[in-house]
């Protein structure tokens, strides 16, 4: 398959997944801020900007961090390349560039998402419509993923698409976990065995819901919510579809499938990171510090992205 085609498929999937994760992250931010009883949760909204990597850009055009400001900036602001709107546009443009490779159902789904978001009014994220909008973005992402799996030939085109999905998802899960843990469990506090009160319970359960893991948690642990188990679920559970372990297991497997003459080192590094998650223990991660662990994960995921680009997507020759 053409390298450029693989590149477009990979980014089509990454941007689709990114839009979904942004919606999830904003949804959890908004829900958490509801607990502040009328006070603006400035720290929470600043954290949302940080997770999206958008704080400097936001500060350039805004004086204050306000819920409305952040919501607009991260959803419909077309000047912000990381907004949901722009992600959906980028997903559509990448799909457009390789529409001949896509099944017509997949192209129609992605194109239709773009047409609809373009036609909707930015005002819907103000007031009570935000939750509904985030649901919609998630739903459209589910739809395009389902159409991808349900209609595409199981060949390289699918593997590169899936590679984009899982790299983006792992990256996103790590970021949201990192920022929320720092906010809910500042460095030096009790290493995360207890969720003390009802307020904490609400915060942790909201975080779980942001990755569709609340029911999963209940099913897996059948016990109280503790921060340590939340981290374990997010990082180490192989069977949790948005966990770092699951994402890296997929990336590792997909890299095996698409391997070429120069990609051995990339495959090895993916395998190494995969095994760190496969054989890691949450006690050891907490002992070394969750934040450094996640930073290391993000750096290694970024390294994989770069190597995949060089090996497959934009090779010199």
């Amino acid at each position: 398959m053409l390298s450029r085609t693989a590149d477009h498929l990979y980014w089509m999937a990454r941007y689709t997944e990114r839009a979904e994760n942004l919606a999830r992250m904003l949804d959890v931010t908004q829900r958490m801020s509801l607990l502040h009883g009328g006070q603006v949760d400035e720290a929470g909204w600043t954290a949302a900007l940080a997770i999206a990597g958008c704080e400097p850009g936001y500060r350039k055009t805004h004086d204050k961090v306000t819920p409305g400001g952040v919501l607009r900036y991260l959803t419909f602001d077309t000047e912000n390349a990381a907004s949901i709107m722009r992600c959906l546009k980028a997903a559509r443009e990448n799909a457009h560039a390789v529409r001949g490779t896509l099944t017509s159902e997949l192209w129609e789904t992605i194109n239709d998402t773009w047409i609809r978001v373009r036609e909707s009014s930015p005002a819907i994220v103000e007031g009570n419509g935000a939750g509904e909008f985030f649901e919609w973005v998630k739903y459209r992402s589910h739809l395009s993923r389902g159409v991808t799996i349900g209609t595409m030939l199981q060949d390289e085109a699918l593997w590169f698409t899936r590679l984009g999905t899982y790299l983006e998802r792992g990256d996103s899960t790590a970021r949201i976990l990192d920022v929320k843990f720092q906010a809910l469990l500042p460095e030096g506090s009790n290493a995360g065995d207890e969720a003390d009160n009802a307020g904490d319970y609400y915060q942790w359960s909201t975080l779980l819901r942001s990755v569709s893991a609340f029911e999963i948690y209940r099913k897996v642990y059948r016990d109280r919510i503790t921060p340590r188990r939340v981290a374990e679920l997010f990082i180490l559970r192989a069977d949790m579809p948005r966990s770092l372990h699951h994402c890296l297991a997929e990336v590792h497997d997909l890299l095996d499938r698409v391997a070429n003459r120069q990609s051995a080192e990339t495959g090895r590094r993916a395998g190494l990171l995969h095994s760190t998650l496969q054989y890691g223990r949450i006690e050891d991660i907490f002992a070394g510090g969750l934040h450094p662990f996640l930073l290391d994960f993000l750096a290694r995921a970024a390294d994989l992205s770069e190597r995949i680009a060089n090996d497959f997507l934009v090779p010199k020759h």
Binding site: S3, R4, G100, T101, L313
Partner: peptide
């Protein structure tokens, strides 16, 4: 391209080497 089952290439996907034209693919030239 889709109907014929052939690659849709742009200039950047092709290069000339050894008096031949090649496409850049994920499996090499």
């Amino acid at each position: 391209a889709q109907q014929m089952g052939i690659e849709l290439v742009e200039g950047q996907d092709l290069f000339v080497a050894d008096e031949q034209v090649f496409m850049r693919t994920t499996q090499g030239p």
